[in-house]
């Protein structure tokens, strides 16, 4: 049983040419028969099987469908066609700090955020100290979030989202938050989770991050799978396609 299995999934954003924002306008357009839609297939007929413990890096140009793919796997967007099956628990980090309320204190945000991730209050009580410790917030934890630096917010977000070892961890361009010491700490935690059997799916524009941190690399372009295999080879082909390796920066 794979950790993640995508069976020829496609996802279509239906963009109305005249997006009717109101019922009234919708009715007018509907009566006139002028309601037309533009279809944007962000992911097309993509199949992928990931086994437990793999770390898959996803590369591709802007707008290739990487983030849409992660959203489907995270269960935020339902596939238009095909099937997406995930085994076990998922921790999606699609953007750090999602669900933070900047008027609340760090402590209150730990609870709110972890609850949004589907944790029970008791679980949070047990892991609270460890989360705050990992985020290195110290006495700031009882100050409102609006007084935090962006690095502190990002650290807290990462600490909460990875506070419990998931079966599948989804990272969308979120590594490298905070200073380099913190980045090292994040990577250590990822490494420990991988060793314990966590599957990782990550999108990154940093070639070294994919090459060093992943066991496999998937290149997608215009929603389709272009290449899938050894990170070095796939990255090489991808970077070559961009014209110059520097363009990947």
């Amino acid at each position: 049983m794979p950790a993640l299995r995508l069976d020829s999934v496609s996802l279509c954003y239906r963009l109305a040419r005249q997006r009717p924002p109101s019922l009234k306008e919708y009715a007018i357009h509907w009566v006139k028969g002028s309601l037309t839609y533009e279809q944007l297939w962000a992911v097309r007929d993509l199949s992928l099987t990931v086994t437990k413990g793999e770390s898959v890096g996803i590369v591709g140009r802007n707008g290739a469908g990487k983030s849409t793919l992660l959203k489907m796997v995270a269960g935020v967007l339902p596939p238009t066609r095909g099937r997406c099956a995930v085994r076990g628990s998922v921790a999606p980090i699609l953007a750090l700090g999602t669900g933070f309320d900047h008027e609340l204190t760090g402590r209150e945000n730990v609870y709110l955020n972890a609850l949004l991730l589907g944790r029970r209050r008791r679980e949070i009580d047990r892991s609270y100290d460890e989360i705050v410790d990992f985020a290195e917030l110290g006495a700031f934890i009882d100050s409102p979030l609006r007084t935090y630096s962006s690095g502190m917010v990002a650290r807290l977000g990462f600490a909460i989202a990875t506070g419990w070892r998931p079966d599948l961890l989804i990272l969308d361009e979120v590594m490298g938050v905070g200073d380099s010491a913190f980045t090292v700490k994040c990577e250590k935690r990822l490494e420990a989770y991988r060793a314990a059997g966590t599957t990782v799916l990550l999108v990154s524009h940093s070639a070294p991050a994919v090459e060093n941190g992943c066991t496999r690399c998937v290149w997608i372009d215009q929603g389709r799978l272009v290449a899938d295999g050894d990170p070095k080879e796939v990255l090489g082909a991808y970077l070559a396609s961009l014209g110059s390796p520097a363009a990947a920066g």
């Binding site: 959203k71 995270a74 269960g75 935020v76 999606p92 999602t98 669900g99 589907g118």
Partner: peptide, 9 residues
């Protein structure tokens, strides 16, 4: 909206 688009809640 922001939460719903980024978390599988």
């Amino acid at each position: 909206a922001g939460l719903i688009q980024r978390l599988p809640v």
